[in-house]
Design a protein around this nucleic acid. Sequence first.
DNA 1: CAACTTATGTGACCAAGGTCACGGAACCTG
DNA 2: CAGGTTCCGTGACCTTGGTCACATAAGTTG
Lengths: 215, 215
Amino acid sequence: MESIAKTTLQQQFPQLEPLLAEEIANQSTLRQLKEGDEALRTGQYIRSTVLVLSGLLKVYREDEEGNEFLMYYLEPGSACALSIMCTARSEKSQVMMKAVEDSEVILIPAHLTEAWLAKYKSWHNFVIASYRQRFEELLQTLDSVAFKSLDQRLLFYLKRHIKVSGPDIKLSHQQIAYELNSSREVISRLLKKLEQRGAITLHRNSIEVHNLDSV
Amino acid sequence: MESIAKTTLQQQFPQLEPLLAEEIANQSTLRQLKEGDEALRTGQYIRSTVLVLSGLLKVYREDEEGNEFLMYYLEPGSACALSIMCTARSEKSQVMMKAVEDSEVILIPAHLTEAWLAKYKSWHNFVIASYRQRFEELLQTLDSVAFKSLDQRLLFYLKRHIKVSGPDIKLSHQQIAYELNSSREVISRLLKKLEQRGAITLHRNSIEVHNLDSV
DNA sequence: CAACTTATGTGACCAAGGTCACGGAACCTG
DNA sequence: CAGGTTCCGTGACCTTGGTCACATAAGTTG
């Protein structure tokens, strides 16, 4: 791995001890993903743990008919908890993972992550922390699907989105509809309502968010 | 802990190495739960990891208005993954846990579970396996809420229920409605349809399941 | 700028499921 | 076994959100 990546690694994952960072830099591979590239498909075997260096990935669920919904985003400095869990037993993936922006990820071979759990305290803590965080996000997603109406879920979605990529949301209504497992027309209607209340401004292929807390 | 529990422990958790079983037997406390007892409340601090020796517990999510829905069941031989995750950082619980039947659980103090991860390979594997299993079950629950109509969710629910407690389901329609976050009337209607198709027979406070795969 | 392509707006309509109101069945208890 | 309590069945009605059919707007490209 080039030294540039190693620097980024230390910036993005400061909680990992230096010796470990060294090992990661030496023994992992770097992968560049273009926007829209799939990092992981449902049913695919997982052979490596994924750490995100830059860009933005989304992790989502897909059913037999191709319906999907967003589980959570992976930002730089985070790891795919599922990939860690699954590498431990080289299981198949239960989810899809796709680059939302051009991204750089580190792929760590399965056998290393396993050994590191015992060897590096900081790795162990990192893994536990990742699990916890993903579990919590998944619970939140579950809450919103189970308890909330679509307009509230849309708000939740927009808020989550601006947290990872700012108040200028570059998405079509159709894309949002997919991620919420809804339909384009309904999302359009709800967004229109939000615009009328002054919370957002709609443009073609983008949404300018002003204030979502007022609604 | 009495020797009877230790025997049960070894029966229910054969994958744990003998030395570990010994430690658990010596350093944990046994707790008896009556049907309906809460083992864990949302917002409560988690100080111990929960292992189930006998009986049946349910883990569910509850929102501000008291709506709830079932996440999964914990059977003998399983552990509450959340309690493990959370003890690691003495965090608050995100979920509710309640005894469905009279149950016996082992409470392991937080500091021990942490230390054991490094000390006992079998404990570490057990914890990882628990995470994985719960994550998968949570994903299934999420799938059913996000993609399925209520009649399919009801089928999913009934199947899951008979898997843990047999084909004689001792629940009122109201209780089922709560766990699916629906309403009593709707559940009644759907159950009636299932009865008309011969899949089940309805009684007061119980449902006799014949065959759910034919529908 | 004309012809396309893609994104958005909107009304009409429909189905699932939640709510209300009430009646009746099953069980319990004095 | 009379009266209460809990549970279940059912019709009427309403809301949410999905679907269909088009209209329009905003970019894009020759």
